[in-house]
Every structure is written in structure tokens, then in C-alpha cells.
Design a protein around this nucleic acid. Structure first.
Lengths: 349, 349
DNA sequence: TTGTAAGCGTTATCAC
DNA sequence: GTGATAACGCTTACAA
């Protein structure tokens, strides 16, 4: 009589009138006499038995659980990334321990501690602390940050994305380009967007300017810059590449409120591929990150874990899509693009 | 010599020169001689030891892990809800197994199976399958669906929210009100928004109309209705309550493209409290759900689990906030409200 | 107080 | 092929 509510292998063995080992063999796909197998399966079914992965893990050192460390869930980029990662893991029978750190280094440490207690088979992390990731004693894969050559890192091809943005703006007739960048100071793969953009400008002999703001608190310098280059509703640049879609949207708002028309006067491209929750359309013309592939790659690397000799950084190809803030593709209608209500793909909310 | 990389209690005991039980007692806060305690702590520190929660759980029947079953992560409402829930659980030392079902009943079943294997101390679920939730043999708390009187359910006060929307529209001068509802057919707490709205209209003797669309695929009937009530850019109603912010945004887009001005001609209120990812402002005037409190309540109920005699449904108070689509508060600037770039609260992206 | 040993649910190694 | 039985890392009587 196990006092717990959940039936155990022992219960199944007793019910089926076989030995414990036999039950185990059935559930692990080892050869078992046909008649025995049936008795075991019937008993298990009857008792509604499920093998306990953690008890099993005690022996096998596998919990079929991976930890996911992410800075935010409120931002659509991270939310979508987490969505793809949990889905990818689920497909392989893994559960995901999701931990949100809100960009707080102390929280990141706490999460690592917690995760070391509840054993996981690996960790996928987008953190701001190189130390944690390197010291961890389980396999780790990072997103967007290459902390150590031994720790595989997955990201989009940020450099190429920057190039594409510049090339596309040129192709659409822009002559004076501007790159706007806001974000934390930490060294990240995402910082290759600017250099990619610059390379394309140089290569094509295009006039351009770059503005980097290293700040997590305020992007006021950005708007000061915009203001200075604004003369009677005329803007000094006719093409802007912003390092994120979020920044792109805010810049668009600012310009439009100052009489500059997007995309007629200025064309703008963002980065990420954020989609408007209500309409299902991209919030601006953008370089979209291949989230699905990034997730699959990260999970592959984590679980195969023959991670030694391989290259350690994987930059996956991005794509450009028009989103109403450039002169190609759909016409602009603010944040909502060319929303057609009769063919919308909303989701019950 | 444990062949695993991770140190075990045995290793700590050997290193400290004490018995196994002593180490255990130290880590469980039981009285231990000062000198012993110090030796154990030093040894643990030196070996970087962490207690294995799952091995511990084998004895104690607690894993400090709860399962979270949610239909989506791409929608900001669910993302925010999950964010609050994981945060609340984390504060109490619990890890969260997040599972996303994409509104798929089969996936919901699979997730339940998986979660039964990796034992959890409880489940918080927003599902479309009453059966799963009722049969589960761990504590369950549901969000927005009351499937069974024994299973606690947490939601916002939807009825009151509906009343508030109607009352606010009246207060702002509306005379002909309209309620628009889109969503799945399943019986849910969210369906009390309409009745609340209706009650307020009746009580105040206001002219009103209700349109319920039970469909998860298309909201075309909504737009057909709008079209029929649209005459030369004049709309038959001057106040609309939509059952979600998403629907509100789409309705606004539709009306504006047909020459109706919001909020000048028609004032619109949504439900949920969705915030624009780029600007940090509400996407429309709305009834906001108390996500933080809902999460805390759900976690409380799940973990205290003295859930028997108590009432089983918890409807938490909502609040109204202006968001530019009504004539109160900030002026409307499309989806972006009165965004002030120099005081923005963006988050690095 | 501290040490010892049984047992949690499972796997894996033995003899049979 | 099947049934005992020792481990896995930990908690918890019970004995010392």
C-alpha cells in the first residue's frame, strides 16, 4: 500500500502479478514475453500509471527538462522566441522551466541557483552575465551572446541584416542614410547590425551617418538628434535603419508628429520582425529574425551536446519584409498596415 | 567516487568528515552543533554543492515545480499573465514548467501526459478541456474557466467590467451603445462582460444593441454589421464596448478607414489592458485586468491547497483607464497615444 | 546532538 | 526471459 495517491511501478507489478523489473522493462522497450507485456500494460492502464521521470532520472541522470533563462516576457520578440523554444523542446518530449529575469543580474544568479537544485538536462540562456553561463555544470547554449568559444551561441545574421537594410533603402531610392541604435552596453551579436549597415554604405559610396546610444534608461539622445536634423518638417535623411522595430515605431511616431511623412519623405526599416497583436501584420518594414530556425538550432545543439569540436557560433539567415514604412509592398496605414478585416487571422481575443 | 560531475551529499559528508544525516540536517535547518555546521557549510561551499530537489522530492513528495498550461505566448495578454505567474511562483521558490497548447485540445492532452511524468506540485491551467482538469490527480487552479465547483477558478470581475464600460461611455456623453463580442463558444468567465454591459444599459434606460459572434476563425460578421450601420461616414452608435482590446483596435481601424473619427464621432472601450510594446501606452481605452493580483491569487490557492471548504471562484476587481479612444484622458494619436519620447519607458529593444 | 539504516520510484546487474 | 537486489541522492525514524 503506497500511501501516495499516485500509483507506482510496485503497484503495477503487484496488480499484474509480475516482478518489478519486468514492469520496468516494458516501459523501457526491452524484450518481454508477450503475455507478460499484456498483463503489465493492462495493469498500468487500469491504475492510470505514469512513470516518474525524476525517480528515473536519479538512475539515468536525465530529467527531460531544460531550463530557459530569458530577460522578458512582455516584449513580443522574447515572447515569440520563448514560444518557439518551448515548442521545439516539447516536440522532443522535453519540458521547459521558464525563468524571467527582467534584465536583472541578481535575478539571473538566483535563477541559476534554483535551476541547479531542480536538475535540468541543459540550459538555454539569453543573459547579461558571462560568468554564470561559463561556470554552469550542465550544457549551455546562449542566444545572441558569444561568451566563450566552448559555449555554442545562436543568433540571426545581424551583419547581413544590416547590409540588407541599407541595400533595400538604396534600392528604394534613398540617398542619405541614417542608422539609429539604442540598447545596453553589453557586447552582443546584435551589435553587428550597425557595422553591416556601414559596410554596405561604404561599398556603395552612399552618404550615411550612425548614432549609437549606449543606455538602457533613456533614448532622449536619439530624439535630440532627430530634432537637430529637422527643419520645417524637412528631415536631413531620407532613409533610416533602426536597430529594433520598437525604436523604429517610436522614431516614426516622433517624425510624423513633426510633420514628416513616412514613407513618403523618409523610409524606415527596423529589425526583429515584430507583428501587431491585433492585426497580425508587421509593425514596420523590417529585417525578420528566423525564430523558428534559431530555436530548432539551439535545441539541437543543446541536446546533441557533442558540442566540442564544432564551430561555436551559428548566425542564421534573415529576411527583409516590407511593412508599410518603405515605399515597396503594402501601403502604410500607421501601425496597422493594410489590414483587411475580412481576411484577418486574429486569435479569439 | 560518484562518477557524476555533480557533487552529492555523500561527497559533502566525506569532505566534512561527518555523517550523511548531519549534512541533510544542515540543509534542512535542523539543529546541528555549531562546529559541525561550519564544517558542512565549508565543505558544501568548496564542492559547490546544491541539494537535488528531485531526489529530495522522492521522499517528501514535493518538487517545487508547478505546471502552467496556456493557450498562447504570442498574445500580449497571455504573455503578461504568464509573466506574472512565473514571477509569483519564483518569489516562493517554485520553478514553472510552461506549456503552450496553441488552443489545440490534443496538445492540451499531450501536455497533461507529459506533466504527469515530470511530477509537479500543482497545475495552473487555462484550457478548453474540462475533462483534463477534473481528472488530474494534483491540485489544479484554472484561469477564466470554472469547470467544477471543487476546482478553484481565478478571473477578473468580468461582469463589473462590462458595467463599468457602459457607465463610462454614458458619462462621456454617449447615447446609443453597442457591444461587440468575438471568441470561441466555450463557456468562460469572460462571457460575463456582455451581461454586465447589458445590465448597466437597462438600469440606466439606455438604448443599446449586442452582437455576439461565436467563431474562432473569422470575425467577418462584425464588419458586416458595422458596414450596415454606416451611412456616409456616419455611424449609428456613438459608443462601443468590445470584449477585447484586440477587437477594439480592429474595429477602430475599420471605422477610421471609413471616415469615422475616434473618439470624436464614436468612443470605444476594450477589455484586457493591452499595452503597446513600443510606446508603453495602452492601445485603447480599456478595462484592465488585475494580472498581478490574479497571479498571486492563483498561486496562493494552488500552494495552500486547503481548497476544500472555500468558495471556488475568485473574481478580482478591474479598473478603467482612458487610452485615447474615449474623450477623457490623453488625446488620441492612433495606436500610439500621447507618446512622449523624452519620458518613454522602453526596454532596450 | 550525531550516526546508522531503511525507504522514496526507478534502473540495471545479477543469478536463475 | 524473469525475478531478486543493489544502487541513484536524499529524508527520517531510531539507536547511540
Amino acid at each position: 500500500m503506497s500511501r501516495s495517491l499516485q500509483p507506482t511501478m510496485k503497484d503495477v507489478a503487484r496488480e499484474a502479478g509480475v516482478a518489478l523489473g519486468t514492469v520496468s522493462r516494458v516501459f523501457n522497450g526491452f524484450p518481454v514475453g508477450e503475455e507478460y507485456r499484456e498483463r503489465v500494460e493492462a495493469a498500468a492502464e487500469k491504475l492510470n500509471y505514469r512513470v516518474n521521470n525524476y525517480a528515473r532520472g536519479l538512475k539515468t541522470n536525465k530529467t527531460f527538462c531544460v531550463g530557459l533563462l530569458m530577460p522578458s516576457l512582455r516584449h513580443p520578440f522574447f515572447a515569440s522566441l520563448i514560444d518557439e523554444l518551448t515548442a521545439s523542446l516539447m516536440r522532443r518530449g522535453y519540458l521547459t522551466n521558464v525563468m524571467i529575469t527582467n534584465f536583472d543580474p541578481d535575478a539571473e544568479l538566483k535563477c541559476f541557483r534554483l535551476i541547479e537544485q531542480n536538475k535540468v538536462d541543459g540550459i538555454i540562456a539569453l543573459t547579461y552575465r558571462p560568468d554564470l553561463v561559463v561556470e554552469a555544470d550542465v550544457p549551455v547554449v546562449t542566444i545572441d551572446r558569444q561568451f566563450h568559444p566552448d559555449i555554442p551561441c545562436v543568433s540571426s545574421d545581424n551583419f547581413r541584416g544590416g547590409q540588407m537594410a541599407a541595400e533595400k533603402l538604396l534600392e528604394l531610392g534613398c540617398r542619405r542614410l541614417l542608422f539609429l541604435r539604442i540598447g545596453p552596453e553589453i557586447q552582443s551579436e546584435a551589435d553587428r547590425r550597425g557595422p553591416g549597415f556601414e559596410e554596405a554604405c561604404r561599398r556603395t559610396g552612399t552618404e550615411y551617418e550612425l548614432l549609437y546610444v549606449n543606455d538602457e534608461e533613456t533614448e532622449a539622445p536619439i530624439y535630440r538628434f532627430l530634432m537637430e536634423h529637422l527643419h520645417d518638417s524637412r528631415f536631413d535623411f531620407d532613409g533610416i535603419f533602426c536597430n529594433t522595430d520598437g525604436l523604429a515605431r517610436r522614431v516614426i511616431n516622433y517624425l510624423e508628429r513633426n510633420g514628416v511623412r513616412v514613407p513618403d519623405d523618409v523610409q524606415i526599416i527596423g529589425y526583429d520582425g515584430i507583428i501587431n497583436f491585433a492585426t497580425g501584420f508587421y509593425v514596420c518594414s523590417t529585417i525578420v529574425q528566423p525564430l523558428r530556425r534559431m530555436a530548432e538550432t539551439a535545441v539541437d545543439l543543446l541536446l546533441s551536446s557533442e558540442s566540442s569540436t564544432h564551430e561555436s557560433i551559428f548566425r542564421l539567415p534573415v529576411t527583409y519584409v516590407p511593412g508599410g514604412t518603405t515605399k515597396d509592398g503594402p501601403a502604410a496605414v500607421g501601425d496597422s498596415s493594410v489590414y483587411d478585416p475580412f481576411h484577418s487571422d486574429f486569435r479569439g481575443r
